[in-house]
């Protein structure tokens, strides 16, 4: 396989799957504006979260608590709204609580010096437990129209707000990672922490910041889910952790730090969304859908990780 193909595998894979589905499912409603818009809306939260995860992975850390934090954020906003708090304050409170989760994760990683894999895995239990206890396992309704319209459920000049959120955040993420000092520090810390330290980069501070960003990102996804699904539950987002990490890694971000790609993770997220959509429209049984998705993911991971020399 040529180097160009290997390095850009995710884009070729996305294009191939898109063209294949457009031809094979032309009579099944795949190539319609509403369906393609659906794919983008469904992929948007994964892409946004993948952007935050890209920073975490690039700094050679991982956040396995993001799914639980998403659920917690939906609950904080729902409880606040039900208590009569203004929707903007409710959203800010949810972001604050989620960022605090990121801060606690960061504290254990940078001060107590625990591996982020274990810290965030352990903290997942704490977050989920608190979320379950707070709501007694109930799903809460999110009825505030302004909130739902602003976060995920509405449209702005005919464009679904979920897509506007994703575009804005991915552009910001791209600029920060590629064109700011902070982005360079993150990549340097992930590439070689000792060398980064010797260059005067405050490694612990960078790691703390990416963990806080991750918590903040999960909180934001929680708001987008709560807005789009008009509900909140401790279980919301719990299945997203691995999907987000997979989308980030097949998009060219290294699991071992030092390399991140925002356009790549966007392609990865849309590829996963397209697969789910196309296989369902193709009339595949659920079992067949799972097998095909697993095989495509395996292929994409094999090629994209080889292209970076990750072994």
């Amino acid at each position: 396989m040529t180097k160009v193909l290997k390095e850009n595998f995710i884009y070729f894979a996305l294009l191939t799957v898109f063209v294949l589905f457009s031809i094979l499912l032309r009579n099944d409603g795949f190539f319609t504006t509403s369906n393609l818009l659906n794919v983008l809306i469904q992929s948007a939260p994964i892409a946004i979260m993948a952007m935050f995860t890209c920073f975490v992975l690039s700094a050679r850390e991982i956040d396995l608590s993001l799914g639980a934090t998403i659920g917690l954020s939906t609950l904080v906003v729902a409880i606040s709204l039900q208590a009569g708090l203004h929707w903007i304050l409710s959203a800010l409170l949810a972001l604050l609580v989620s960022s605090l989760v990121g801060f606690i994760n960061g504290f254990f990683v940078t001060v107590v010096k625990l591996p982020s894999f274990l810290t965030t895995l352990a903290f997942t239990g704490v977050i989920t437990g608190v979320a379950r206890w707070t709501t007694d396992l109930r799903t809460l309704s999110v009825g505030d129209r302004s909130f739902a319209g602003f976060f995920g459920g509405g449209k702005f000049y005919g464009i679904p707000s979920m897509i506007i959120w994703a575009t804005a955040l991915l552009v910001i993420g791209y600029v920060v990672l590629q064109h700011t000092k902070f982005g360079a520090w993150v990549l340097a810390v992930g590439d070689n922490p000792t060398s980064a330290q010797s260059q005067g980069i405050k490694v612990a501070r960078v790691k703390m910041l990416v963990m806080v960003f991750s918590g903040f990102g999960a909180g934001l996804i929680g708001l987008l889910y709560a807005g789009r699904l008009e509900s909140a539950s401790y279980i919301m987002g719990s299945g997203d952790t691995l999907t987000v990490i997979a989308a980030t890694v097949i998009g060219g971000t290294s699991l071992f730090g030092g390399k991140g790609s925002i356009p790549g993770l966007l392609a990865g997220s849309v590829l996963l969304g397209l697969l789910t959509n196309g296989l369902l429209l193709a009339g595949f049984s659920v079992t067949q859908q799972i097998i095909v998705q697993g095989l495509v993911l395996l292929l994409a991971l094999s090629v994209s990780s080889k292209s970076k020399g990750d072994n």
Partner: peptide, 8 residues
């Protein structure tokens, strides 16, 4: 058992 996937 994923509410987002249910809507999707």
């Amino acid at each position: 058992f994923d509410t987002a996937k249910q809507k999707a």
